[in-house]
Each structure stands twice: as structure tokens, then as C-alpha cells.
């Protein structure tokens, strides 16, 4: 099973069911809060305040922020060109000139790791904007709000799409579409003078995001749908309807607001998943291509006892960066969850 990059649980039925159950609870939560005098604001500020109190989580947020900002500035802060090979100095251990050593082609590992983090950062952003989230929310809103046959069609389609052996289809999907898209994007790059779309792997992650969305939107859609069903029966929607608000307005203003909290929790908890997806994609053979550094490929090429024994720096530094990032995302996801769903605490 391919893990969902955004952590918005996809095909696993438990996950869907639990999302649903959970959403009911947070729905209660919201409704409860709605009855309070200060209304919505207090809910958010309370959650944030709960989050502030978690020291480890705050440390992790700082680390994540540091890594994101640092990596986006990587061309300015790295000591070497990440592509500059040096055949006389391959596989050197850490030294003053190369604090993380050099890789198999004699390139500076510190630079490569920093740029690798940058790749991950770009990917997390691309993927979050990618299909699963958007498609899931839209489908869920439609399904929940319109009901009847629309609901039935969407739900049945979702069951079909989420029953596939994803990796298989994803691979076929990618191998069928990538060459065509690559040609198109190359033409686009030539026409516009941009040159980073392919090199940064944005193209690949766009394709993958769409591919994953096709097979993975259902979990999110069910979550949203459950939430909408909850809200539909609540009084303020009825009131909105009575006052003649349009469907779009109701969806946008009232319901979207209701599902934001579970959404934030999902996204924050899923960030590590997004980061990790890069490794999976390398494995499928569609990730970022050299010479663009990728932590995924570094782990991949060097995750062996032989490397650990003979050239440990090749694996330990990238692993360190990945583990730190995953750990911070995990802690953050955990903390955000606690903050937004205090009852489970």
C-alpha cells in the first residue's frame, strides 16, 4: 500500500471510519463552542494556547521552520556547487573542507544534504497543493451536501478507486503520462525561459499528486462528508437556508469552516508522510532525478551494512536529516492533534 502523502487516510477502511467517528466528535466540539458567547475565536485561540504549552512541540516547530527557511536559502549558504564533482576526492570522510565528507563522485555531502532537504521541502509544498486534498474536499462537500444520487455515485466511485492495488496502477499511470508531459513541459520551459520545473522534480510530483489523488481522494472525501452531514442538521445551516443564502455560500462559509479543524490535524500529522513520499517515489523510479540531490536517493543508494561499515558518513548524515525531520513532523502532528482535540488528552 502506498502511504498517502498528505496523511489524509486513503484506502484503509479503519482510517475512514475513524475519521468519520472522530469528525463527529469534533463536530460536537464545534457546536459546543458555537454556543459560547465569544464563538469560534475562542476555539482557535484555545487550541493555539494548548499548542504553545508543549515545549517539545515548539522546539520541533522551530527546527522545522529552520530547516524550511535554511533549505530555501540553500544556494546562499552552501559552501560548494552541489553538482561539482571532484574525481580526486571521492568518498572522503568528514574533514574541515568537507564537514560531512564527500560522496561517491567527490561532491560535498553537506551541500548535498542541504539541497536534499530543499527538495523535500519543495515536495511537501507541491504535494499538499496537489490533488488529494482538493479533490477530497470538493467531492466530500458535494457528496454530503447534495445527498441522494450524487452521494451514491461519489461514494460508489470512491469505493472502486480505493480498492485498487495503487502502486501498480500508479506506476503504469506515470510511465504512460510522464514522457508526454515531459515533452510538453520542455516546450513550456523553452517558451517561458523557466528552467527549474523539471530539474526540481516539480513535474514529477505534480504527476504523482494527480495519480495519488485519483486513487486516494476517498479517505478525505468521507471525512468531509461525515462532517457535512453533521453540520447539515445543525441549526445554523437551517437558519442560513431560511435567510436565503446560496448553496455555494453555505458550503463555503459554514461547512468549510467546520471541517477546518480536522483538516489541520490531518495535514500536520501527515507532513512526515509527505516528506517520506519522496523516498517512495524514488523507489517507483519517478522521483527527483540526478543531479538534483534527493535524500530519498541518498538513503536508497547507501542503506546497506556495507556502506555503514566502510563509508558510514554516506548514510549517517542523510539519515540524520531525515530522521530529525520525520521526528519533528511526528511530534508536531501529535501535538496539534492534542491541541485541537483536547478530550483525548
Amino acid at each position: 500500500m502506498l502511504p498517502d502523502r498528505s496523511g489524509l487516510s486513503t484506502r484503509d477502511s479503519h482510517a475512514e471510519q475513524l475519521d468519520w467517528a472522530e469528525s463527529e466528535l469534533s463536530g460536537d466540539q464545534l457546536l459546543e463552542l458555537d454556543t459560547q458567547p465569544i464563538r469560534g475565536h475562542s476555539y482557535w485561540s484555545l487550541a493555539l494556547r494548548r499548542l504553545y504549552r508543549k515545549k517539545l512541540a515548539m522546539v520541533c516547530i522551530s527546527i522545522i521552520a529552520f530547516m524550511y527557511v535554511g533549505s530555501l536559502l540553500s544556494p546562499l549558504i552552501t559552501p560548494y556547487d552541489f553538482r561539482a564533482v571532484d574525481l580526486q576526492n571521492t568518498r572522503q570522510g568528514p574533514s574541515l573542507a568537507h564537514p560531512f565528507g564527500t560522496d561517491r563522485q567527490g561532491r560535498d555531502m553537506l551541500t548535498r544534504v542541504i539541497f536534499g532537504v530543499r527538495t523535500t521541502v519543495i515536495i511537501t509544498i507541491t504535494s499538499l497543493l496537489g490533488g488529494t486534498l482538493v479533490l477530497g474536499v470538493v467531492m466530500g462537500l458535494m457528496s454530503g451536501y447534495m445527498g441522494r444520487w450524487v452521494d451514491a455515485v461519489i461514494m460508489r466511485t470512491g469505493e472502486v478507486t480505493s480498492s485498487f492495488p495503487e502502486i501498480l496502477l500508479l506506476l503504469i499511470f506515470v510511465s504512460a503520462f510522464r514522457p508526454r508531459l515531459l515533452t510538453a513541459v520542455q516546450a513550456f520551459e523553452d517558451a517561458t525561459g523557466l528552467d527549474w520545473i523539471i530539474r526540481l522534480g516539480v513535474l514529477d510530483f505534480m504527476i504523482i499528486s494527480v495519480g495519488l489523488a485519483i486513487f486516494g481522494w476517498f479517505g478525505m472525501a468521507r471525512l468531509v462528508r461525515g462532517q457535512v452531514l453533521q453540520a447539515r442538521e445543525s441549526q445554523y445551516i437551517e437558519a442560513a437556508l431560511v435567510t436565503g443564502a446560496s448553496t455555494a455560500h453555505i458550503l463555503r462559509v459554514h461547512m468549510l469552516r467546520n471541517i477546518l479543524s480536522p483538516l489541520i490535524v490531518s495535514v500536520s500529522a501527515g507532513l512526515a508522510g509527505v516528506a517520506g513520499a519522496e523516498l517512495v517515489l524514488s523507489w517507483i523510479g519517478v522521483g527527483v532525478f540526478p543531479p538534483t540531490p534527493s535524500l530519498g536517493r541518498m538513503l536508497f543508494e547507501n542503506g546497506s551494512p556495507q556502506v555503514l561499515l566502510n563509508h558510514p558518513h554516506l548514510i549517517l548524515f542523510p539519515i540524520g536529516a531525515v530522521t530529525l525531520l520525520f521526528f519533528c513532523f511526528n511530534i508536531l502532528g501529535d501535538a496539534v492533534n492534542d491541541a485541537f482535540n483536547p478530550r483525548t488528552r
Binding site: 538513503l299 539519515i319 530522521t323 520525520f326 521526528f327 501529535d334
Partner: peptide, 25 residues
């Protein structure tokens, strides 16, 4: 409480690429 959960999360964050080779060695 915090320590236990954090350690569990740390283990969760370790990629197999490092745990498997270390165990083998």
C-alpha cells in the same frame, strides 16, 4: 509520559534503511 511517547515516536521516525543494516551488522 512524555518521554515514553517521544521515544516511541523517535523509533517510528527511523527509516528501515538504517535499522535493518544496523541489526544485520
Amino acid at each position: 509520559d512524555n518521554l515514553i511517547v517521544s521515544i516511541a515516536l523517535a523509533f517510528q521516525s527511523l527509516p528501515v534503511f538504517i535499522t535493518a543494516p544496523v541489526m544485520l551488522l
